[in-house]
Computed example of a mutant assay.
Amino acid sequence: MTTSTPYAVFGVSGRTGAATADALLRSGQPVRVVVRDPAKGRPWAARGAEVAVADATDLAAMTRALVDVRSAYVINPQHYHREDLFELAGLIADTTARAAVAASVPRLVALSSVGADRESGTGWITMNRVFEQRLAATGIPTVFLRAAYFMENWAPLVAQAMRSGVLPTFLAPPQRAIPMVATVDVGSAAAAWLRDDGKESRAVSVSGPAAYAPTDVAAIVSAKLGKAVDIAVLPESEWAAALAQASFSKAALAGFTEMTRALNRSHIDMASDASAVAWSGTTALEAVIARLCAQS
C-alpha cells in the first residue's frame, strides 16, 4: 500500500542510494531524497521526489531532513582523500544517530558491510562497524545491510583488461570465490526492508545469486574480447602504485591494505556472524561485467 509519508533516502548521488530511491519510486512510493548539493536533487524532483538538503555533519539540517518520514535509508559516506576519514566517519555516525533520535524516526535501514561484525583487522570496514554501533545505541529499530564485495568494484580493473588483455586483481588466490553483489540489488534490498514494518534490529547479509572468483571476471571479459585474458595477482608491495590514480590519503591506503589482506585471509567472511539474515539478489556477475566492458 502506498503511504503519503515519505521514505527518506540518503546517498542518491552514489550507487546504492540511487538504486534504493529508484526502486521505491518505481513501486509508486513517496520518496524524500537527501542531498548535500541541491543540483543533485533536481533529477529526483523531476521524478516526483521531495528534496531535502543536508550536510552529513550538520545536526540541525540532518534532523530537518528526517522529520516526518516512515523510515530512512542512511549511509556513512567515506572520504578516501582525507587523512581523518575514520574520525570524520565517526562524526557522521554520531550526527546521523542524534538526528534520527531528534526527528523520532521510527525505523532505519543502514548500509554496512560484510565484516562489520569483526572487532578489528578490517581496515575501511571499521567505519561501518562504528556506524552500526552508534545507530544501535539509539534504540531505533535498524536493519544493517552488510553488503558483500560490490561487483562494480571491478570497473577500473575491467577497463585495464579490455585495453591490455590482462586483468589485475587484489584478490587472491584468483580461483577462490567470494560473495559479491550488484549495487542495484543492494538498492532492492534496502527498498524492501524500508517497507518492512518489523520492530526489531537485525543484520542482513546481502549477496548476489552466487559467489564469484577473479577467474570468473576474466572469463567474462575474455568472452567479450574474443581472446584469452590473463590474470595478474598484484602483490601487496604493488598496491600503492596500482591505486595511485585513486588519490587515496595515507590513512585510506592503509585502511584499504588491511581490508584487502583480511579478505584474502578470510578474516572478513559472510559466515562469521551466524545471526545475520541472508538475502540474495538476482543480478549475475555476467550482467555487471558485460556492462562494464561496454563502458570501457
Rank of each mutant, 00 (worst) to 15 (best):
E200P: 13
A218I: 00
A218L: 02
S237I: 11
D216M: 02
W154V: 07
A147H: 06
A219W: 03
A254M: 04
A240D: 00
L225F: 02
A274F: 00
S249G: 02
F170G: 03
I268C: 01
A192D: 10
M270V: 10
P156I: 06
A262F: 01
Y212P: 15
A213H: 06
T183G: 14
Q175H: 15
P179I: 04
A242V: 08
A240F: 03
T169S: 10
A189S: 13
E152A: 05
S247E: 11
L194R: 14
S164I: 06
I178V: 14
Y212M: 13
V186W: 09
A271P: 13
Q160H: 09
A262H: 12
E238G: 12
W154P: 12
S272K: 11
A251W: 10
A159V: 12
M162R: 13
S249L: 02
N264Y: 04
V166L: 06
D273N: 10
A228S: 09
I220L: 01
A192Q: 13
A155V: 11
A213R: 11
A228V: 15
P173M: 04
A155C: 12
D197H: 15
D216A: 09
F144G: 02
T183C: 15
A254R: 15
P214R: 01
S272E: 07
F248I: 08
F144S: 05
F170L: 07
S272G: 09
A190S: 13
R261H: 07
G208M: 02
A271E: 11
I231W: 00
V217Y: 03
D185P: 15
M151H: 15
R163D: 03
A242H: 12
A211K: 12
I268F: 06
Q245Y: 11
V184C: 14
R195E: 08
S272T: 10
V166I: 14
P235F: 00
W239P: 11
V184L: 02
T260Q: 09
E236H: 13
P174Y: 06
L263V: 09
